[in-house]
């Protein structure tokens, strides 16, 4: 089936098999490997991207369902060489160790801050319920997101 999807501001048209996931489309067809696959069955959040501005788990969306939508992946967050404030905050506050969960964390954080520009620690933790990290213990991720909020608001 033919789909047209806008990814990080660029419109792409491809013929795809209905059974491939949006993650698969991003990684294998568009070569955007920043979106990671952890569980591949909607549990871990590593594959999170935003679709029409909302955080979603791309492993649990068929590429054909994304037809006509506007997707942002981790590759679309920086402005040229300048990191997005959420990325910069993760770097500064050690919000990552191995980095596997980080793209998903950053994309979920974008959704959290869009709906709640000044979240409490508890609200950030609640917002991250669908994202697993096996390294950091979450503490510095939460710290990073709260610092990013301050940067964005200042």
């Amino acid at each position: 089936m033919k789909i047209t999807v806008k990814v990080n501001g660029v419109a792409y048209t491809h013929e795809v098999e209905p059974r491939i996931s949006l993650t698969h489309y991003l990684r294998e067809i568009l070569d955007l490997t920043g979106t990671h696959i952890g569980c591949d069955t909607s549990g871990c959040g590593a594959c999170t991207v935003t679709m029409d501005g909302k955080a979603v788990k791309s492993c649990t969306i068929l590429a054909v369902q994304a037809d006509g939508s506007d997707i942002t992946t981790i590759e679309g967050m920086a402005n040229g060489n300048e990191m997005h404030p959420i990325q910069a905050a993760f770097k500064e506050h050690h919000g990552l160790q191995c980095g596997f969960c980080t793209p998903g964390m950053v994309m979920t954080a974008a959704d959290i801050l869009k709906n709640n520009p000044n979240p409490t620690e508890e609200e950030v933790r609640h917002g991250l319920e669908g994202n697993f990290c096996r390294c950091t213990g979450y503490h510095n991720i939460v710290k990073s997101i709260r610092h990013a909020a301050e940067q964005i608001n200042s």
């Binding site: 999170t48 979603v56 649990t60 969306i61 959290i112 319920e129 994202n131």
Partner: peptide, 9 residues
Amino acid sequence: IGDVQVRNK
């Protein structure tokens, strides 16, 4: 229900 990503879909 679930988490924000699940609730969004």
